[in-house]
């Protein structure tokens, strides 16, 4: 799943964001003395929003940033389209340094290459659905005929054909957020920034929109930064997940990596409640074939990419361990105790 770095669409390097009048002083002090977040607040009256964040997102990848409220995830993502200026650090979009852009260039990038969806929809209440969706094009000075055509097309993508001339308030929350997504897609941007887009919706609609969104992004091949406070959502949607705590990225990895190998106690607590059945694959729990003394004749076989769910199915019908294969080669075995521990989350 890891995307090769050469095709990075978004690259964030050592970004710090410190809020407050004395941000520069605080930054210098952090460099020199390695202050913690509360110390910075006490000494300089500055709040550390993002601390030393670095990551890359490849083309077509969905990169989730997960963290609790106040962890700096929304702040971090707003650096990508420079709604927030970093205190230090470098942000590149398609190889261009965002902080070096002029006001005009920046507006062009925002209008053409980045679409953003907000937690509270942030639709303009006085404009029709159509005019909301077409707003990025309107800013770019596209003619009305094109705006209308594009907005109709994009609304079709999110299943809202026929609602063009309604006002946002006439639509339900889920529909409004689909309008938000359509607006983000309208200018056919390279990058989508999703700031907790489904958090304000009720669970059923959220699930439905998650599915729709995943399919849509795969189909359109958009590079996506997806913010969420819900680990389930991150695992469901993301190719990779970055977990943030107190402005710092604690761990970056695929859902499986995060679940099977949490970087610290904080991540472990999060991961505890997550079902591993579909996430953990055979290769991450299997033991060497040599460790099993008895015969393996007639034992069930499974490829190393098989998930726990599948292994349980196989294990139910036999007393023998499951042989894990890579092509024709036997690479390991999974015994019942190992399988049970694997379901628990890899306790030794």
């Amino acid at each position: 799943m890891d995307q090769p770095a050469e095709s990075a669409v978004v690259r964030v390097e050592n970004v710090w964001k410190i809020f407050g009048d004395r941000a520069k002083d605080a930054m210098a002090a952090i460099r020199d003395r390695d202050l913690t977040k509360p110390e910075v607040l006490e000494e300089f009256g500055c709040v550390v929003g993002v601390a030393d964040a670095s990551f890359e997102v490849g083309r077509g990848e969905i990169f989730c940033i997960m963290g609790l409220s106040g962890s700096g995830k929304s702040t971090l993502v707003r650096h990508v389209n420079r709604l927030i200026e970093p205190t230090t650090g470098r942000i590149e979009i398609l190889g261009n340094d965002v902080s070096k852009m002029s006001e005009r260039q920046l507006r062009a990038v925002r209008a053409k290459q980045i679409g953003m969806v907000f937690q509270h929809m942030a639709l303009m209440p006085h404009r029709s659905v159509r005019d909301n969706v077409a707003y990025p094009l309107e800013i770019r000075g596209e003619p009305k005929s094109r705006r209308w055509a594009v907005s109709e097309h994009t609304l079709e993508l999110v299943d809202l054909a026929g609602y063009e001339d309604r006002l946002p308030k006439e639509l339900s929350g889920g529909m409004q957020q689909r309008v938000g997504i359509a607006r983000a897609l309208a200018s056919d941007p390279e990058i989508l920034l999703m700031d907790e887009p489904f958090s304000a919706l009720d669970p059923l609609i959220r699930l439905q929109l998650q599915h729709q969104f995943k399919a849509l992004v795969a189909q359109l091949n958009k590079t996506t930064l997806f913010i969420t406070h819900d680990l389930d959502e991150a695992i469901h949607i993301g190719h990779r997940i970055a977990i943030m705590k107190d402005g710092r990225i604690v761990q970056i990895g695929t859902p499986e990596e995060i679940v099977t190998n949490p970087a610290d106690e904080y991540v472990r607590e999060f991961v505890q409640g997550i079902s591993k059945l579909k996430l953990v694959k055979a290769h991450s729990i299997m033991e060497p074939v040599e460790s099993y003394a008895k015969s393996l004749d007639g034992a069930p076989r499974a490829p190393e990419g098989a998930d726990l769910d599948h292994l349980i199915d196989l294990s139910v019908g036999t007393d023998q361990p499951i042989v894990i294969t890579d092509g024709d080669i036997e690479v390991g075995i999974v015994t019942k105790p190992v399988l049970l521990r694997g379901i628990q989350g890899g306790k030794a």
């Binding site: 990038v109 925002r110 907000f118 937690q119 990025p136």
Partner: peptide, 10 residues
């Protein structure tokens, strides 16, 4: 947020 959204779209 609405002001921010407009800014985010350029």
């Amino acid at each position: 947020p609405i002001k921010e959204a407009a800014t985010a779209f350029g």
